[in-house]
C-alpha cells in the first residue's frame, strides 16, 4: 500500500512536517517494502491554495492514505473527493509515523484539523494579517 507522508527532509528518518500544504517534502512510501519516492513539494511557494495543490499531487501519485500533522479544509476536501483518508496528529520521524500507522495506532480524521492557511503562519510566505491604522502600520498582503 502506498502512503504519503509530509516530511522535513527527503528520507525516512526525517522529522514529520506538521504542515500538509506547505511541507518541505512528500515521501510516497510502500508500506510493505518501505521503499519510497521523495518529492519536493511544489506548493510550498504557492501564493494561495497550497493545500489544494499538494492534495492533488498526492492523489496523482496514487497514495491511498496521508499521514501528516494537520490538514486544512481545502486540502481535506480534495483528499476526501479522491477517497484518500487523512491521518493527522502524527509526530516523530516519517518512519515512526508509518510504523504507528501499521500498528493501527493512528485514526483517520473525519474532518479538517486546522483552519485554512494554517501552514502560512510563522513560516514562509506569512504576513497575511498585519494591523491597520494608528501605530501598527498598514495592512499588507
Amino acid at each position: 500500500m502506498k502512503i504519503a507522508v509530509s516530511a522535513t527532509a527527503p528520507h525516512l528518518d526525517a522529522a514529520l512536517d506538521p504542515r500538509l500544504g506547505r511541507c518541505q517534502y512528500f515521501l510516497i512510501v510502500d508500506t510493505e517494502s518501505m521503499e519510497f519516492e521523495a518529492i519536493e513539494n511544489p506548493a510550498i511557494t504557492a501564493p494561495g491554495g497550497a493545500g489544494i495543490q499538494a492534495a492533488q499531487l498526492i492523489a496523482e501519485k496514487g497514495a491511498e492514505a496521508v499521514i501528516t500533522g494537520g490538514c486544512g479544509p481545502n486540502a481535506y476536501q480534495v483528499l476526501s473527493a479522491a477517497g484518500i483518508p487523512v491521518f493527522v496528529g502524527a509526530s516523530g520521524s516519517a518512519r515512526e509515523a508509518i510504523e504507528s500507522y501499521k500498528r493501527g495506532e493512528l485514526q483517520p480524521t473525519p474532518q479538517a484539523s486546522t483552519g485554512p492557511g494554517a501552514g502560512m503562519r510563522g513560516g514562509m510566505g506569512g504576513g497575511m494579517g498585519g494591523g491597520r491604522g494608528g501605530m501598527g502600520g498598514g495592512r499588507r498582503r
Partner: peptide
C-alpha cells in the same frame, strides 16, 4: 483546468471537480 489555474482554485480529484470560489 487545474493545471492552468494560477491560484489553485479548481481541483480535479478522481471523478470530482472542486471549485474553490473564494480563491
Amino acid at each position: 483546468c487545474s493545471e492552468a489555474c494560477a491560484y489553485n482554485a479548481i481541483a480535479v480529484a478522481g471523478r470530482t471537480v472542486l471549485v474553490f470560489r473564494e480563491l
